[in-house]
Amino acid sequence: MNNRSIHIVQSTAIPVDIENVDTDQIIPARFLKATSRDGFGDNLFRDWRYNADGSPKKEFVLNNPAYKGKIMVAGKNFGCGSSREHAAWAIKDAGFDVVISSFFADIFKNNALNNFLLPVTVSDDFLKELLETIKNDPSTLITIDLPGETITLEATGRKENFDINNYKKTCLLNGYDDIDYLLSIRNEIEAFEHQHA
């Protein structure tokens, strides 16, 4: 276990009740000119969050001081479009450890997992309940139990299981990433190359 690992996350949540959020909205292309992984959180949802002059748009949920927490709850088909990992970096950099939706785009899901940002897929019905409950009461607590693969809405006690493959789960629990694993089997990769040459 190291400081990247994820076990149990209990937190209030921020409801981003919008469907088909694409990675261009999460982080617009004009902010992709950096050559490091840091600092993207400031521009998370830039054009929904700020006016052209840099003043905050009051109506956008991230600017509402009532909502805080390490969990983002978002509409269906979250993270579609561009493969930019900057989207996952921006969400993580802004202080989130978990994103909950009823459907994630494939590339975003992989990018999130590679950055120890846990994408949790719930049923459409549960997502609706989560969004409504949080919107009505921003102090609503949600518990994500990675070892048990469950998500609980504490206010109502409703609990759902979520899917994650065993390999990825082990990585997240221990703070390992895919490169650590792939480097450890490089002799097998070389043998494969030799066979297929």
Partner: peptide, 11 residues
Amino acid sequence: GTSEVEMVMAT
């Protein structure tokens, strides 16, 4: 994504 770009570069 970029982490995967790094994986392919490494292995």
